[in-house]
């Protein structure tokens, strides 16, 4: 039989064959699931129309009975990566707890300093409340001091 590219190719025969096969495929498809238009509006057992909602989480009637949660398998590479990250996470957690401990120590020191300043404030307030001026004022002397001469 001459090929497709030859001058005297059997054009009609090829076209007829391909046409017949596509028609055949469509027909077989139609047999498996019928469209809504051919089976009435309320028949559920039809192909979905483009208008139908595609929401995945929406309950649409029947509950499918499946035993598997996922069809994906964990690759060896991914498994190693996860294990490695877990190790790092543990280390990080250790560091964090250490940091918190040292921070607490610094805060304790600060508290000591603040309490010093607080002590000082209390000291100052007490002295002001009691108004004890003995530290700040000298007592007069019986002799006293005289300077200058009695003339202009």
């Amino acid at each position: 039989m001459p090929s497709r590219n030859s001058i005297n190719k059997p054009k009609d025969k090829i076209l007829k064959n391909s046409h017949a096969s596509t028609i055949g495929k469509r027909r077989s498809n139609r047999v498996r699931l019928s469209t809504r238009s051919s089976h009435g509006r309320y028949n559920d057992n039809t192909l979905p129309t483009p208008r139908d909602s595609k929401a995945v989480a929406l309950y649409t009637g029947k509950i499918p009975i499946t035993t598997e949660l996922t069809t994906k398998t964990l690759s060896n590479k991914k498994a190693k990566k996860l294990a490695r990250n877990q190790k790092y996470n543990e280390k990080r957690k250790e560091l964090l707890t250490k940091d918190i401990d040292s921070k607490m120590e610094v805060e304790d020191e600060k508290k000591v300093k603040e309490s010093e300043a607080e002590k000082l404030r209390v000291l100052l307030w007490n002295s002001i409340k009691s108004n004890d001026l003995s530290l700040f004022k000298k007592q007069p002397d019986t002799e006293g001091t005289t300077i200058g001469v009695q003339s202009f």
Binding site: K138, P140, D141, G144, T145, T146, I147, G148, S151
Partner: peptide, 13 residues
């Protein structure tokens, strides 16, 4: 100049 003539009750010892 000399300071003016004045007298204080306090003394520096």
């Amino acid at each position: 100049f000399e300071p003016v003539y004045c007298q204080s009750q306090f003394k520096l010892v």
